[in-house]
Amino acid sequence: MTLTSTERPPTNAVARLTGQFFRSRETGILAALVIVIAVTTIVNPTFLFSSDGFRDLLLTPSILILIAVGQAMVIITRSVDLSVGSVVGLTAYLAGRLFIDVPGIPIIAVFLIAVAGGALLGLVNGLLVAYGKVPALVITLGTLYAYRGINVLWTGSNRINSSDMPKAFLGLGTQTLLFIPSLTIIALVVVLAAGWYLRNKRGGRELYAIGSDPDAAELYGLRVPRRIVTAFVLSGALAGLAGILFAARYGTTNSQTGTGLELQAVGAAVIGGVAIFGGSGTVYGAAIGAVLLLTINRALPILGIQDFWQQAVVGALIIGAIVLDRLLALRLSRKLTSERQVSHD
């Protein structure tokens, strides 16, 4: 897992980059992840050293990574998207329905429709937040229930089972390529693409600017509403992608699919160092946060920790991450201020 170092090719300033690597927020999360994996593996070597163990390690968090990346982009603009769990549910069911209702439909077409459907649901969120000027927390809490309601209305007590979906499609959910699950490869590609966009495109940088100071963004003449809509559309599209992959991976979907994923996604982003008030953080961090969150969930039973405590540990992790961020921010701001005083004396 060297997500952060694949970000840019090594240059002659290797020393500077390694320095940056050790200081960056993502490194800490990565270290925590490595420790969790190492300790659990010592207790039970099959956690990592078995073909299933290694595969599960990568496969389990893949779907959450996709949502966490979308969530990170939205949070960076100082919003939040609580509807993603419901979007996953809707698009997963949509995918299943398409296979049943349109026999012989190409798998790629179902993918495109699911992603577009997710993007459309995200567009609704984005338009309401950006032009309705209502806080995202309220809007997406509303659409969380509204989208779930549509799902329940449409699905009823139906359940789509693996027998309803083509084998090739279900294979996508579990097959591997060079020992790496294809789901993980998709997630990795998304993470790298989103990371590249946020770092290298004007649109990406403007998401940070908007989250850092919305008023300044207006004064700079940035197209604030448009960028916010973009972030929500991307979040919705990624939730759509997660939805169809959910159907492929678990081979079943009903009206409750994806419930609770939104909070896991917010948790993953926050643990990964995305500031909840926007303006800083990376999708790499959010992705590692997602892996850490789900890996801990799997590790705790192996370490003999009771069910009851597992939730508490996740909660402690999120609060710990926020406290750590706050402390780091305070330290940085004190350091920056004192540097300034030194340079002016």
Partner: peptide, 13 residues
């Protein structure tokens, strides 16, 4: 923009 670098603050947008 407090979170962004001096350079980015000059050229944002």
């Amino acid at each position: 923009f407090p979170d962004l670098s001096v350079t980015e603050n000059i050229f944002m947008g």
